[in-house]
Computed example of a mutant assay.
Amino acid sequence: MVADGIRIESLVKTYGSGDTAVHALRGADMAVAKGEVVGLIGPSGSGKSTLLKCLGAVIEPTSGRMTIGERVIYDNGWQTRDLRALRRDLIGFIFQAPYLIPFLDVTDNVALLPMLAGTSNAEARKNAVELLEALDVAHRAKAMPAQLSGGEQQRVSIARALVNRPPVILADEPTAPLDGTRALAVVALLNDMAVRFDTAIIVVTHDEKIIPTFRRLYHIRDGTTVEEIVSE
């Protein structure tokens, strides 16, 4: 499958050197198209966290190639000096915990990132409210994070990840704190948002409740990846 979302090829990450070197990634490959949600699973120590950090431009791979859309972002070295702008403009993040800013209301939590990127306050808040409406939490727009349920907080964190319309979203255990019904609801939301906003979404998970919902999975073990087609 040709991926116009994100593609990694032969990605290697080695920590240290010589006899103490740790080979966290040994040539990982992955391709996720826009509008698609793909699961990434594997045992502890398999390289999931390292792969996610490389994909998110948090750590630098040792070698390989990464492409977002038609833009090569890494080819045996970063192809841009401004990694912060790369993360801001091209990659959205959803974490296990929502990490909402407690002293900002829901709208400002979502609007903050585009404001920091230079979008006017009015435009950023307008875009935030539109996303909150799409995620059925617009009625909580003026609420503070502590007033939200766990499911509402996770919806707000999804809105925050989408607000700059990134071509890629990385979701790290987004359903871990949720019960079965809410976990499946979050996955359904991610699939809907991926199609609606033309975004490639990678979900790292141990949650057995949601694994059957993915059409494609990547298994990672000992730093290498294997693709599994779950359903057509």
Results as ranks from 00 to 15, higher is better:
Val2Ala: 14
Asp4His: 11
Gly5Lys: 08
Arg7Trp: 09
Ile8His: 05
Ser10Thr: 12
Leu11Arg: 03
Leu11Gly: 03
Val12Ala: 10
Lys13Gln: 05
Thr14Ile: 15
Ala21Gln: 07
Leu25Phe: 09
Gly27Ser: 06
Ala28Thr: 11
Met30Trp: 10
Ala31Glu: 13
Ala31Met: 11
Ala33Val: 03
Val37Lys: 06
Gly42Tyr: 07
Ser44Gly: 03
Gly45Thr: 07
Gly45Glu: 03
Lys48His: 14
Thr50Met: 06
Thr50Ala: 12
Lys53Met: 12
Ala57Thr: 00
Val58His: 09
Ser63Met: 07
Arg65Lys: 15
Ile68Gly: 01
Val72Met: 10
Ile73Trp: 06
Asn76Arg: 08
Trp78Cys: 04
Ala85Ser: 12
Leu90Glu: 11
Leu90Gln: 15
Ile91Arg: 00
Ile94Gly: 04
Phe95Leu: 06
Pro98Gly: 08
Leu100Asn: 06
Ile101Pro: 01
Phe103Thr: 15
Phe103Asp: 10
Leu104Gln: 07
Ala111Arg: 01
Ala111Phe: 01
Leu113Trp: 04
Pro114Glu: 02
Ala117Asn: 12
Thr119Cys: 11
Asn127Phe: 05
Leu132Lys: 00
Ala146Tyr: 14
Ala146Met: 15
Leu148Val: 07
Gly151Arg: 06
Glu152Lys: 04
Asn164Lys: 03
Pro166Gly: 02
Ile169Leu: 13
Leu170Asp: 05
Leu170His: 00
Leu170Phe: 00
Asp172Phe: 04
Asp172Gln: 12
Pro174His: 00
Ala183Met: 00
Leu184Tyr: 09
Ala185Cys: 09
Val186His: 02
Met193Asp: 05
Arg196Pro: 03
Asp198Ala: 14
Asp198Cys: 08
Ile202Arg: 01
Val203Pro: 04
Glu208Arg: 12
Lys209Leu: 15
Lys209Thr: 15
Thr213Glu: 14
Arg216Lys: 14
Arg216Glu: 15
His219Tyr: 14
Arg221Asn: 15
Thr224Tyr: 12
Val226Arg: 15
Val230Cys: 04
